[in-house]
Simulated scan of single mutants.
Amino acid sequence: MGKITLRNIRVYAYHGCLKEESIIGSDYLVTVKIFADLQKASLSDNLENTVDYVFINRVVKEEMKISSKLLEHVSKRIIDRIFKEMKSVTKALVSVSKVNPPINGDVEMVTVTLKKKRI
């Protein structure tokens, strides 16, 4: 078993419950942790035997383009696509962070993390 992490994928997107958030947009950071059997890849040195992190990055960017009110909703879309399209993934964690959220306070970011395990 092994883990691949894509940390702090930077995306500008339009998520939030406030009308202004869907118009103005905001900066987001997305971290994806993927668990899979990496033994074959470690021996073969072949991309076909591992989780393609270029693909994971593309999934994040595509799903972040679709506006959602809640970070939980966009996180679930990302994690569900990973499981649907990458059969080798056994477990994943997806964290979506809104940088400088409009919550009338001095908060660097707010983060929602979802995890899923293949049964």
Rank of each mutant, 00 (worst) to 15 (best):
L38M: 12
T31P: 01
T50R: 03
F35N: 15
K87L: 12
R77Q: 05
V30S: 03
K69Q: 11
T111M: 13
K69E: 13
L47I: 11
S22T: 10
K98H: 11
D37Y: 04
V96A: 04
S44P: 10
D27I: 00
V112D: 11
N104A: 02
S22E: 10
K19Y: 15
L114E: 07
A36G: 02
I103T: 09
A36F: 07
S44E: 11
S42E: 11
V96E: 02
L6H: 08
M109G: 11
K84I: 03
V99W: 05
K115Y: 15
R58S: 14
V59A: 06
K19V: 07
A13S: 14
I119P: 15
S97Q: 07
F83L: 09
L18W: 08
L29D: 09
L70A: 12
K116Y: 00
Y14N: 10
V110C: 13
D52I: 05
G25V: 02
I66Y: 13
C17H: 15
T50H: 09
V110H: 05
S88Q: 03
S97H: 08
G105C: 04
L70N: 06
V54F: 12
E72C: 14
L38P: 06
S22G: 15
F35S: 07
N8Q: 14
N8G: 13
R10C: 07
S95Q: 09
N100K: 07
K65W: 05
A92F: 01
S95H: 01
I79M: 06
L6M: 13
Y14L: 10
E72Q: 14
V112S: 09
V110M: 14
S22K: 12
V112W: 03
K76M: 07
K76H: 12
Y28E: 02
I23T: 07
D27M: 03
T113R: 01
A13N: 14
K98A: 06
A92I: 00
P101A: 04
K65Y: 09
I24S: 01
L38Y: 15
K76I: 04
L38T: 02
K117Q: 14
K33S: 12
M109I: 01
V94I: 00
I23K: 09
S75D: 09
L71D: 08
A92H: 02
L38E: 03
P101R: 01
R118I: 00
I103K: 06
D106F: 11
I9K: 02
V30Q: 02
V59C: 02
R58P: 04
G16W: 06
K69D: 08
T113E: 13
D27K: 13
K98G: 03
E20N: 09
L43V: 01
A36I: 00
T50S: 14
